[in-house]
Structures are given as structure tokens and as C-alpha cells.
């Protein structure tokens, strides 16, 4: 009992302190994107943990408390959605067209390519919800039988890919509509994409963050429902 408590305390304190340190570096550097705390802190902890005599198992057990906070984080997403509600209501048709066709294209293409390459069930389960914002993707993946680390890896890789490639693809395909550009970036690269589309302008940026939140809603409802349906058939 005492050992377990000590473990939790050590994991939490080590993680939190390293995070604060990483955040300081990030802010001091004028928020350079490659110094994002996610990268620096992960690397630091990875190097630091062996010195604290922590192995994977005890660290994973000790940091369980963070997964509770992830859940309250999802609940907190209601606040930005509430604030964007008038905007969502005004453009509901456009947004629906965008996220349904984008989301379906994403899920269908993942399924087909994953099937062709012969990927395993838990990998596919971690792949499918990747277009939702991270915390939502995580909880959907876990109901599908995916694993948290893989889901995080997949969401991050595809967000980064979309962030870098997205603007070129949109330009190259001559997609000029502000709504289309904002939504496409918000859906494919979530927070990173919304941030990028604010650089194009106010309207694109707002659409970017609306795209992110509404996709999260769509994914969180339709993918588990779809699984339930296929289980019945």
C-alpha cells in the first residue's frame, strides 16, 4: 500500500515538474512549434525515469490519475462548443456536409487500406477515431478495443501530416472557399489545424475550430454506434 502510494506520488510529481519546466522553455522560445511540451517533456521524462528507479509498469500504474483528468477534460470541451453554438447553428448545413463527407472519406479509406495491408484488430481500433481531437479519440478507441499509446501516436502523426501537407493540397486542388479551407484543416489536424487556419483569417479560423469540435461529436457518437450495429448483423 505504502509502496503503491509512493509510486503514484513520485510519478505524478516527476511528470508535473517536468511539464512545468517544458512549458517554461516553450514560452521563453516564443512558442516554437517543435518545442511543444509534448515532445520536450516526453523526451526528458524518458531520460529521467531510469534515474528515479522507475520501470514502465510502476510508472504506468503511478500515472493512472491522469486518465481521470482526461475524462474531465472531455467534459470541459462542452464550454468551447457552447460558445461556438450560434456560429454552428447558422452554418449547420455547410458544416454537416463537410464533416460527414470528410469523416466518411477518412474512416472508409482507413478501413480499406488497413484491410488491404492486413493490419490487426487493435491497431485498426486505434486508427479509426484518429480524426477526433485527442481525448475524444482516446476514449472512443478504448471502447473499440484500441490501446491508448497507439491512438495518441496515430492522432499526432496524422495531425502533423495534415498540418504540413494540408495547405499545399488545398492550394493545389484550387479549393478557395474560406469555409471549406477552415473546416478541412480543423477536421484533419484538430487544434493544430484550427490554429493554422486562423493565420488565413478570422472566418477560416472560426470554421477550423468548429470543424474540430463537431468532428469530435460526430466521431464519438457514430463510430461506437456503427460497431454496435455491425455486432448485431
Amino acid at each position: 500500500m505504502i509502496i503503491m502510494f509512493g509510486n503514484t506520488l513520485l510519478s505524478v510529481v516527476a511528470t508535473a515538474l517536468t511539464y512545468l519546466f517544458g512549458l517554461r522553455i516553450y514560452r521563453k522560445s516564443n512558442q516554437k512549434s517543435w518545442l511543444n511540451p509534448l515532445y520536450t517533456v516526453t523526451l526528458l521524462l524518458f531520460l529521467l525515469l531510469p534515474f528515479l528507479h522507475m520501470d514502465v509498469k510502476s510508472y504506468e500504474k503511478g500515472s493512472k490519475i491522469f486518465s481521470l483528468l482526461l475524462q474531465t477534460g472531455i467534459v470541459s470541451l462542452a464550454i468551447p462548443i457552447y460558445k461556438q453554438f450560434p456560429m454552428i447553428k447558422k452554418n449547420i448545413k455547410k458544416i454537416t456536409v463537410g464533416i460527414v463527407s470528410g469523416g466518411m472519406a477518412g474512416v472508409a479509406s482507413s478501413l480499406v487500406v488497413a484491410f488491404l495491408l492486413g493490419l490487426k484488430g487493435d491497431v485498426v481500433a486505434s486508427l479509426l477515431p484518429k480524426t477526433a481531437t485527442l481525448p475524444v479519440a482516446l476514449s472512443v478507441a478504448s471502447t473499440l478495443g484500441g490501446t491508448a499509446p497507439l491512438t495518441i501516436l496515430f492522432v499526432l502523426i496524422s495531425a502533423l501530416f495534415s498540418l504540413i501537407v494540408g495547405p499545399h493540397v488545398l492550394d493545389g486542388c484550387n479549393i478557395k472557399s474560406k469555409t471549406a479551407r477552415g473546416l478541412a484543416m480543423g477536421i484533419s489536424a484538430q487544434a493544430l489545424g484550427a490554429n493554422r487556419s486562423f493565420q488565413w483569417g478570422e472566418e477560416e479560423g472560426a470554421m477550423g475550430s468548429v470543424g474540430m469540435t463537431t468532428t469530435a461529436i460526430l466521431v464519438s457518437v457514430t463510430i461506437p454506434m456503427g460497431m454496435l450495429l455491425t455486432a448485431y448483423l
Binding site: 470528410g102 495491408l117 480524426t131 496524422s158 472557399s177 477536421i187
Partner: peptide, 28 residues
């Protein structure tokens, strides 16, 4: 197998970008 995963991720990201972009543009 990292290359397989990367292939799936990049292809489906492209599909999302194009699917959203074209459908909204067409709608407008």
C-alpha cells in the same frame, strides 16, 4: 509495422482534406 501505419494515416488524411474541401466548395 510503421510503414503500413504511416501509409494508412497519410492516405486517410488526404481523403479527409479533399473530401471536406471539395464537398463544401461544391455545396457553396
Amino acid at each position: 509495422q510503421l510503414w503500413k501505419v504511416l501509409l494508412v494515416l497519410s492516405l486517410s488524411s488526404l481523403c479527409i482534406l479533399l473530401g471536406t474541401g471539395y464537398s463544401v466548395e461544391l455545396y457553396e
